[in-house]
Simulated assay, not measured.
Amino acid sequence: MAASPVQPSSSASNYDFARKQIRRPDDHVDMEQLLRRLTRLEARIHDALLPTRTEDVRRIVEKTGLPHESFSEDVAEALGMQRPPRS
């Protein structure tokens, strides 16, 4: 029996989960945890770019709603993400 495709959950619930993971008991953001998670995300994106077409990875990133500003310049450049125009 083939596995059914995973249905994407709403991005709001994904962000709520992430917020809970990086909050300290005093309700402040644990910046060390946030930066560690961001670094791991960027490393996984770099790993995914090796065997995958850049366009496919960029579409996945855009589908999740992560903006250019969420990434370091080298990762955004590797994904071919355009810096939004300044207003």
Rank of each mutant, 00 (worst) to 15 (best):
Y15H: 06
P5K: 14
E77M: 08
A78Y: 04
D56M: 11
D74W: 05
E77R: 15
L79G: 03
R23V: 03
E77H: 13
P5R: 13
D30Y: 00
E32I: 09
T52C: 12
A12V: 11
A76G: 06
E77Q: 12
L50P: 00
L34H: 02
Q33S: 10
S72D: 12
Q82C: 06
E62N: 10
R53S: 12
S72M: 10
N14W: 07
N14S: 11
S4I: 08
V57K: 05
R44S: 09
N14G: 07
E42M: 04
T64I: 15
T39S: 14
D74E: 13
D27V: 03
K20R: 15
L41D: 00
R86S: 14
R40E: 09
V29N: 00
S13D: 08
S4L: 14
P5M: 05
Q21Y: 10
T52K: 07
D16P: 03
H28P: 01
A76T: 03
R37G: 00
A18K: 04
Q7M: 14
A3F: 11
D26T: 07
E55Q: 12
R19C: 10
V75A: 02
P85G: 04
I22S: 03
V75F: 01
M1E: 05
G80M: 07
Y15N: 07
I60Q: 03
N14K: 11
P5Y: 06
H46V: 11
K20F: 09
S10W: 06
P5G: 02
R40D: 05
E32W: 13
Q7G: 03
V6R: 15
L66I: 05
P8R: 08
S13W: 07
P67W: 05
V29Y: 05
N14D: 06
S4H: 09
V75G: 00
T54W: 06
E77G: 08
D56F: 13
R53T: 07
S72I: 12
A3N: 08
S72H: 13
Y15A: 13
H28M: 14
R58E: 00
A18E: 04
D16E: 15
I22N: 00
V57A: 04
N14R: 14
P85K: 12
D26K: 09
M81K: 10
R58L: 08
D27H: 14
L35N: 14
E55D: 14
V75Q: 00
A78E: 02
S70R: 10
S13V: 15
M31I: 10
D74P: 08
L66H: 04
R23A: 05
S13H: 10
H46W: 06
V29T: 13
Y15T: 05
D47R: 15
I60D: 02
S13G: 02
S4W: 08
R24F: 05
R40N: 08
V61A: 01
V61Q: 01
F17N: 07
R53W: 06
F71K: 02
R83D: 07
R53C: 02
D26L: 09
R37W: 03
T54P: 04
A76E: 00
I22P: 02
L34M: 09
E42Q: 11
L35E: 14
A43H: 06
S4M: 14
V29R: 08
P67T: 08
T52G: 01
R83M: 13
A78D: 04
Q7V: 15
E55V: 13
I60C: 05
A43D: 10
H68S: 01
E73L: 15
I22K: 02
P67E: 06
A43L: 07
D74F: 03
V61D: 01
Q7S: 12
L35Q: 13
